[in-house]
Design a protein around this nucleic acid. Structure first.
Lengths: 218, 218
DNA sequence: GTCTATACTTGGATAGAC
DNA sequence: GTCTATCCAAGTATAGAC
């Protein structure tokens, strides 16, 4: 099912006003998920942040749940694009981890992964939402697998580590690190792990350099 | 601050009835956190599951938030004891991972880690709750560090991997795997990672057997 | 200790004026 | 398209009977 737009009356096209409001609502939802979590992201709270009336949530998105999913789609698409760029530019394991560290930090600052985490955990409260969130994780699973596959290509540990399995672990690790970093407002422990991984990666790059194909991005 | 019991009137000791109700409420809270999440764990929902009146939540615990923390304490204490037993019995890396796999599976079945994850993520919605949940994570951090330190003792990679850092990663990994397993009701990906870790651990056990001191548990 | 009843608040959602 | 006004459901918390 496509993004259910406003069931608009006779008028045909979506006006500039409507677009602006939709955009503001999505942005406000992202902000709300980050600051007050899934439970606090009510129609009223979101509308307040967007500077508009509560009823517009229902006019434009039909329900709060749909708006939450729209926000997840928005942040997910934008971050996936950023991650893809990074992956395309990295040609060694060390490159990859350096970039991953930068992006992880960016995500933490901007609360991007927090949105995903809130949606994953909050989904339990709303029947049927879990499946919809899970669907939206699919492109991330695929991306993570590609990244891991390229990172391990030509490495001495390639045979030991199936990309699909490792990718699942990487995703879990990112989510878990985000969870902990947000809980106690301290990202140092997470960043230290990236530094450690970088050190090990530099060893692996020496032993068996990853055979990365530059500019292979779809 | 100690567990704030019921501000009981003139009567001195806590009766058997009160103890039973408190126990039932805590159990019901754990169940609710697992099945309907932080957002759904209301006083009414919890009381319904406990088979008592909603007002007893406030009589015995003062507020819903306090009851949630009591439930977290309960499950945390019981699981930590189980984990300690396992750690004490493991004498090789492979032992450790085998046991970790069993316990991870148990936790998933019983929803123990789910309670923790719900509290971590739900904490954002309630001001001040985050810090209280973070405090309750301290024994887990300490436990994880001890486990990792013992697991790596005498291993060839010991110098490369500081226990404190790795422990943080292990915790993040557990939380993330739990998150994903609960989301799409599929633990196969997580279990595959345990199997893979076991394989690698068996190699490490061969190269440099971990110098574990049996029965060193506090 | 436990219940019923109730006051108060907040949130989802809709109707209708503009 | 946006707002005001409103209904209804659900939640927290307390008072008071038993």
């Amino acid at each position: 099912m496509a993004t259910s737009g406003p069931r608009r009356a006779a008028s045909g096209a979506v006006g500039a006003k409507a677009g602006a409001t939709r955009t503001a609502l999505v942005a406000a939802t992202i902000e709300a998920l980050q600051e007050v979590g899934f439970g606090g992201a009510s129609a009223r709270e979101i509308a307040r942040r967007a500077g508009c009336n509560q009823s517009l949530v229902f006019y434009h998105f039909g329900s709060v749940t749909e708006l939450l999913l729209a926000a997840l789609d928005d942040v997910s698409a934008r971050r996936l694009a950023a991650y893809r760029d990074v992956l395309a530019a990295a040609s060694t394991l060390v490159d990859l981890i350096d970039s991953a560290r930068v992006i992880f930090s960016e995500d933490l600052d901007a609360g991007h992964v927090a949105v995903l985490v809130e949606m994953i955990t909050g989904a339990q409260a709303v029947p049927g939402l879990g499946a919809q969130v899970s669907e939206r994780l699919a492109p991330w699973r695929e991306f993570a697998e590609t990244a891991v596959r390229r990172a391990l290509a030509g490495s001495p540990v390639e045979a030991l580590l199936p990309a699909r399995e490792v990718a699942h672990g990487v995703m879990a690790g990112f989510l878990g690190l985000e969870l902990l970093a947000n809980l106690d407002g301290d990202r140092a422990a997470a960043l230290a792990l990236f530094d450690r991984a970088r050190m090990i990666a530099s060893l692996l790059d020496l032993v068996g350099p990853a055979a990365l194909l530059p500019g292979e991005q779809p």
